[in-house]
Write a protein that binds this DNA or RNA. Sequence first.
DNA 1: GTCTATAGCTAGATAGAC
DNA 2: GTCTATCTAGCTATAGAC
Lengths: 186, 186
Amino acid sequence: MRTQKVDPENVDLKLFETFSKLGYDGASMQLLAKATGLKKASLYHRFPDGKKEMAQHALSIVEEWIQQNIVSVSANKNIKPEARLKKVIASIDELYNGGANNCLLRTLTVGTDADAFKENVNSCFNLLADGFADIAIDLGLSPEAAEQQARFINLLIQGSLVLAGATSDKNYFKNSLAKIPALLAA
Amino acid sequence: MRTQKVDPENVDLKLFETFSKLGYDGASMQLLAKATGLKKASLYHRFPDGKKEMAQHALSIVEEWIQQNIVSVSANKNIKPEARLKKVIASIDELYNGGANNCLLRTLTVGTDADAFKENVNSCFNLLADGFADIAIDLGLSPEAAEQQARFINLLIQGSLVLAGATSDKNYFKNSLAKIPALLAA
DNA sequence: GTCTATAGCTAGATAGAC
DNA sequence: GTCTATCTAGCTATAGAC
């Protein structure tokens, strides 16, 4: 196996960023090639099933990110739940660049091939909710209340990103993140 | 002027629906033609500036809808604010088909030509917020609190539509609508 | 005002040299 | 593994008959 001349992790990042910003239909192969620094044919070498595979790969990157930065952290009983919550909120702040970035889970649910991504998008939202619910339970909420609040946090984040993007006012996002601790208090 | 063989209002509706569902990049001229029942060339006759004008037109339809169903109703002092609120919530429920439909204001903010629609999308969100704030003030909230809650309602609606769409669970939307009255109580 | 036909281009995808 | 060159199909948009 030859050495890859372009760093795979950077390719991953650029695919994620481009699909997040432009959605599936808006992210053309030309733009993806320019963003990654690879020619189109090279992208097809890495992703033989084409653009759909690239978007699915971007989704899988998000799923791994959620596992590592939300689910694993949320389940770590060695850390106080308050501290875990602070960590996952900081991670989400970073993921969305303080509210400046779109969410891939949202942008991939609109377009001609939205159905192809729905299952994986749904499972990402479930993972996120599971993470928040884990912390909420350790903070003293009932499992039912924890799940309900965790789902509401997903809603707050998505709504704030839509409004922040549409109005260029990141405060929607910042304010929503700030509300989370109170929502999970017993 | 010859008679238009295809009802303009139905064309408007289909443009709105198609752009809402698929976004700007996903709504191809072919699909728009099929949806409206007009051939591509006929669509260009009605919208000489092409697809961008069609999307802007769909946006303007939404803006008019908001004026008529939210802003005007919210400002109508002849009706009790509680009743006005009920009406506008019912209208929003209808607009989004109980949470089954995407929001055009959201889908047009993602894609290669998102910048072209940002200003009008922003003004639609402002109109919506103004409507809710109007009612909130009449319900006894301070102007500052009214504006803050009205913006939060926009966020709730958008977030709930994203989650409802991604998970096929309309309860996200229904529950968010149900929360609105309490949010505007003095 | 609507249509058929088509121009001109870009899309996603592939072949084969290196 | 990456590239140039290219294919076909789809895209937006236009010309011109009716």
